[in-house]
């Protein structure tokens, strides 16, 4: 059966659980105080879905706002994006909107986006009303998942869904693309760089 290799990125505010979700899924590990990500981590996992298999190359980016300018280096050429927010933190949900906007204008056209409302094991401290989140994602035509990297709830389902949506969206290319294009290369384009640093202005 065909194997599709694809690059996906995790995006979202700091400490919402991007690394934890990726680690839980790829290695089934969970640390209460996951160390903060500097720049980005890289993880990879082969997902088998009934249609075939998908090699997910996950670039797990740093959440701090100041790393945001660099994040575009990672989501460029990505076939999928996982935007994470923390259900106990209103601000992190507001960030989701701006990430979706940025992806829709800057990323590949057919990028598959899913949204994860993480830390759903902390239901008591919830600040984002679930119907609100669902309605928002429905309007955007994006799948929403309630996840908990701690308990593992929803994590596998979410990555499976991401993998199968990516498979569907890209199956046209499967046969044709040669070996060269298989790799999820991350290329930091030099010219782009300068543009970014110009735009960034006085953020820091």
């Amino acid at each position: 059966m065909a194997t599709m290799e694809c690059k996906i990125v995790t995006l979202g505010e700091g400490r919402v659980g991007k690394t934890s979700l990726a680690l839980k899924y790829v290695k089934n590990e969970f640390h209460k105080d996951e160390i903060s990500t500097v720049n980005a981590n890289y993880l990879t996992k082969l997902v088998q879905i009934p249609q075939g298999s998908v090699q997910l190359n996950i670039w797990d980016t740093a959440g701090q706002e100041r790393f945001r300018a660099i994040a575009s280096n990672y989501y460029r050429q990505a076939k999928g994006a996982l935007i994470v927010y923390d259900i106990t933190d209103r601000k992190s949900f507001d960030k989701v909107v701006s990430w979706i906007k940025e992806l829709k204008s800057q990323a590949e056209k057919n990028i598959v986006i899913v949204v994860a409302g993480n830390k759903c094991d902390m239901e008591k401290e919830r600040q984002i009303n679930r119907p609100e989140a669902l309605e928002f994602c429905r309007k955007m035509q994006i799948r929403h998942f309630d996840t908990s990297a701690k308990s593992g709830n929803g994590v596998e389902e979410m990555f499976m869904e991401l993998a199968s949506q990516i498979f569907e969206a890209n199956k046209g290319e499967l046969g044709q693309s040669g070996r060269n294009s298989r790799r999820g290369k991350i290329t930091v384009e030099k010219t782009k760089h300068r543009e970014n640093s110009g735009k960034k202005g006085g953020c820091c």
Partner: peptide, 11 residues
């Protein structure tokens, strides 16, 4: 392989 040192140099 498309590995740019910036990826790890930052950390």
């Amino acid at each position: 392989q498309g590995v740019q040192p910036a990826i790890f140099l930052m950390e």
